[in-house]
Simulated scan of single mutants.
Amino acid sequence: MVAIEIVRVDPVADRPLAGQILAVQKSSYAVEARLIGDDRIPLLHESVNDLCAAQVHWLVACADDEILGAAAWSGSEIDRLVVSPHAHRQGIGRALVEVMIDSIVGQRIQVATGRDNAPARRLYESLGFVHTENQQVLPGLWLARYELVR
């Protein structure tokens, strides 16, 4: 396995980087869309401008100058976690979440994922997140909400 480096980045200051993050995000959310049977995931349809406008802190996981995953948070909420499909099941998502947990100030951390996204749910649960509710955000589009209390 290749050594993964996780670094904080600012896509607003680096548009090519923003484009690379967006490409990973779109490919990752396309997998989630297939898992949950719904492609109305808002982050699947973001543009580079949308990504740069998000008021979040960013991390990327890189190996050999390739972005394999990215994550973002705002306040005490994980905003997004994406891993390139060819890098799934290599610990990249877990490593990104662990760095976010260490970076987030506060006692409670919240996250949501597709209710039917079993791999993401297993990841959050394995890290100690507790399922708090299911929420229908659009007709037929359900999220599973989680919370980690430290």
Rank of each mutant, 00 (worst) to 15 (best):
E98M: 13
E5H: 08
E125T: 13
I67E: 02
L138G: 00
A13K: 13
P119N: 05
Q107T: 10
Y124P: 02
V137Y: 03
E5R: 13
P119F: 03
G128R: 01
H86N: 10
V31H: 00
V48Q: 12
N117L: 07
L35K: 07
Y146Q: 05
G93K: 06
D14M: 08
Q110T: 13
R80H: 05
V7R: 15
Q55C: 02
I21C: 10
G19N: 10
E5C: 00
R115Y: 06
N117E: 06
S47H: 02
L44W: 08
I78Q: 03
P119V: 05
I6Y: 07
D116G: 10
L44A: 12
I101R: 12
L17N: 03
A63W: 03
A70E: 14
A95H: 00
R15F: 03
R115K: 12
L35G: 00
A3Y: 02
C52L: 08
I6S: 09
E125V: 09
D39G: 13
C52I: 14
G75V: 05
Y29F: 15
L127S: 07
D65E: 10
M100S: 02
E32L: 09
V60I: 15
G93A: 14
D116K: 12
L81R: 02
H86C: 04
D50K: 11
L59G: 02
Q107R: 10
E133Y: 01
I104R: 10
F129N: 02
A112P: 00
Y124F: 14
Q90W: 00
H57D: 09
R40N: 14
E133N: 02
S28K: 08
D38W: 04
L51P: 03
